[in-house]
């Protein structure tokens, strides 16, 4: 009995030692020399491995930073300036601040704006749908509504609004990694400057058809009339291929274009009150719906002239933001 126990212990111990030696030798043989700073940089990364930086993952990004010893071409959109500062600190480098970005859906083809002409019966994927035909409405350029962008978002920042059939960006959660931009076969989603106090003005349409055809397909389409281009005092708006585009670097958020747009294709978000033509009247509180939706923005509201906009419409416009603040 005792001998059995002793033998067992002896054999197991010996086996352990032999295997340990083997393990050690193998580990030595296949050891990979790596810059220890890669690990350090990786530690300060967000670790989402989303690929928004253009690298396969956070480690690949860290490796690239260390190898290049220069952060000019590398930027982590998820971690933003905070993370980049940390990375710079680890590597002892300088980093330029970048303005925070956010994904913007440039389509306003809601169910009510775009009459449906077709039903889709295949696999629910924008990629499949766009390879097949123009979509369920007369608009060839607009959102297909299958939610490839929602599926691509790793941060849960996108959701489909069942009412409008369009994706909605939660700007609190959006990290501007750009996965949705790549996922959208219609290239509707764009990364734009988040803007001061998250205020932005953008053209919510990418329809390149001529005015009449665009208008026929969608009530809220950009018809390329060029009124916005003329109205802009900063030269930020350009109409090309029958569609207007606002350069966010140049835009000063005056919202003159918003007022001019005949179809309401230009959207302003997170402003305390809807844009109107400058009127002599002094500031007055915004409509009830708008104020309820934007408690944060309310105190900072600049002098905004009163508007004759129905409460429902104002509420609808700020709907995306409402979600983000909940």
């Amino acid at each position: 009995m005792t001998t059995t126990i002793i033998w067992t212990i002896a054999i197991i111990t010996l086996l352990g030692v032999v295997l340990a030696v083997v393990l050690y030798l193998v580990a030595e043989k296949f050891k990979v020399e790596e810059d220890p700073r890669i690990d350090e940089v990786e530690k300060v990364m967000p670790g989402a491995n989303c690929g928004g930086c253009g690298f396969a993952g956070c480690r690949a990004f860290a490796q690239s930073c260390v190898e290049a010893m220069n952060l000019d071409n590398n930027f982590c959109p998820v971690g933003g300036n905070e993370t980049m500062k940390k990375v710079a600190a680890v590597l002892g480098l300088e980093v330029k601040e970048k303005a925070p970005m956010v994904a913007v859906v440039r389509c306003n083809g809601t169910c009510s704006n775009r009459p449906r002409t077709n039903d889709y019966g295949g696999y629910s994927s924008c990629k499949v749908k766009s390879a097949l035909y123009s979509g369920d409405t007369g608009c060839f350029y607009g959102c297909l509504g299958c939610g490839d962008c929602v599926a691509a978002c790793q941060f849960g920042a996108l959701s489909m609004d069942p009412e409008t059939g369009l994706p909605v960006v939660d700007e609190e959660k959006c990290t501007a990694c750009g996965a949705c931009v790549k996922a959208c076969p219609k290239r509707i989603i764009e990364l734009r400057n988040k803007g001061p106090k998250n205020r932005r003005v953008f053209v919510s349409c990418v329809n390149m058809e001529k005015g009449a055809a665009a208008r026929k397909a969608c009530k809220a389409a950009c018809i390329g009339c060029g009124k916005c281009e003329k109205a802009c005092p900063f030269g930020a708006v350009k109409v090309e291929h029958n569609v207007a585009y606002i350069d966010f670097e140049k835009c000063r958020l005056c919202r003159k274009c918003v007022v001019e747009c005949p179809t309401g294709a230009i959207h302003d978000v997170n402003f305390p009150a809807p844009a109107v033509k400058p009127a002599p009247k002094p500031a007055a509180p915004a409509s009830a719906a708008a104020s309820a939706a934007k408690p944060v923005a309310q105190p900072a509201a600049p002098a905004a002239p009163e508007v004759k906009v129905s409460a429902a419409e104002a509420g609808k416009k700020v709907e995306p933001e409402k979600k983000s603040e909940e």
């Binding site: 039903d119 889709y120 696999y123 390879a131 097949l132 035909y133």
Partner: peptide, 8 residues
């Protein structure tokens, strides 16, 4: 009214 479309 609305034609059904799906891939083959």
């Amino acid at each position: 009214d609305r034609i059904l479309v799906s891939p083959s």
